[in-house]
Design a protein around this nucleic acid. Structure first.
Lengths: 201, 201
DNA sequence: CCTATATTTAAACGCGCGTTTAATATCTGA
DNA sequence: TCAGATATTAAACGCGCGTTTAAATATAGG
């Protein structure tokens, strides 16, 4: 029953957000009553937190691990971010509903545990790239990190709008082209002055 | 009283979103009772729509007008978008709460009246730039339009997170540097192959 | 001045929310 | 077997929400 609640909570919280998903909805989806939420998790927020830890743990480890593995290319980082976001649509929904939204319930945790750990690694990666001469020397790495995250995340946050407006389907093939396009845009866009911009493939 | 309600609605709806801002909150902020909302606007949604039309009209005209004025540089477009987003913080909040969020109350209108009109103009601008040889010939203009919007909008949507995480203050000076950085990243990133990337200033 | 209309007030409505209670069922170990 | 702990159920709680009603007040026109 505990697991059934966690499963239902994953589906509904990550689809509709914390406020819109009601305790009764989740309980019914799990085949029980809201009293079980109180019994196992204390209250609705406790269920949300438990569900979140289960959902986000693997993703957090994946991202943190692959960055610490060593110096990687910005293009590789872009690919990893976008593939993760594409493969787990709930991440974008969660960020919109619980991080970016005013008083987002997950913002504090997200800043502390996810973005707060990841951003320094991205900045350090860009600094190394700058030191090695693969990006221009006068690049502001913090602004560049922001641009990189913008390019990687926004398309998935805005998927429901970008689809109809720009005529994008967000199928597997198109996402692959989007990743290649994005990696090239960022790589070429930060190339040292005087070095010719070359197609990657 | 009608105007007092619209003023209070602007402040609270645009700050907290439609759901979180309660009818009583707005009525009290306007110095009256919720019954006045029913009297002048029928219900809460009517007040939201009336407030929205008043708030978004000027911005819509500004953006639509300056694009139809003629062929402009992508860098100019980027500057205009980012300056508008920076000068009107409520735009980012509105987009997060009512457009990107699941079942956002403003998504339909936004797609039809704002993004749906603007995106074709951005795409056309990029096509002209491509035809004139100022961006590379094999650039996918739809993906490039998505990247452009990502770079322009995401920093302001994620302001509350990017600030602490990347150490950004989002003051006037920094926003100016962000705009210059973004314009350069996009311009250089879409430059034709073989043409040297040059600093802009 | 008086009446009819427009505006404002105060109070309550029904509803669904998260939560809690108390009773019942199920399981477990000595 | 059978008490004690664990798990589940059904029902209700108080609360705040958007909304509605009906009475009181202000405002204009003949």
């Amino acid at each position: 029953m505990r697991n059934a609640l966690l499963d239902a909570a994953s589906k509904l919280f990550l689809k509709h957000g914390f406020d819109k998903a009601t305790a009764r909805q989740i309980a019914v989806a799990a085949g029980t009553t809201p009293a079980m939420i109180h019994y196992y998790f204390g209250n609705k927020l406790g269920l949300f937190r438990a569900m979140l830890e289960r959902a986000i743990g693997p993703v957090r480890e994946l991202i943190a691990g692959s960055l610490q593995a060593g110096a990687v290319d910005p293009a590789v980082l872009i690919r990893m971010h976008m593939q993760t976001a594409a493969a787990n649509p709930w991440i974008a929904t969660l960020i919109v509903n619980e991080v970016l939204a005013e008083k987002g319930r997950f913002r504090g945790t997200f800043i502390r545990d996810v973005a707060g750990r990841q951003a320094p690694l991205v900045i350090e990666l860009l600094q190394r790239a700058r030191a090695s001469g693969s990006v221009r020397a006068d690049l502001d790495v913090r602004l560049a990190a922001l641009s990189l995250l913008s390019l990687c995340m926004f398309p998935f946050l805005a998927r429901q709008v970008a689809g109809p407006v720009l005529g994008l389907k967000f199928d597997e093939d198109e996402i692959e082209r989007l990743i290649a396009h994005t990696a090239r845009l960022f790589t070429v866009g930060t190339v040292p002055a005087g070095r010719a911009a070359r197609p990657e493939h």
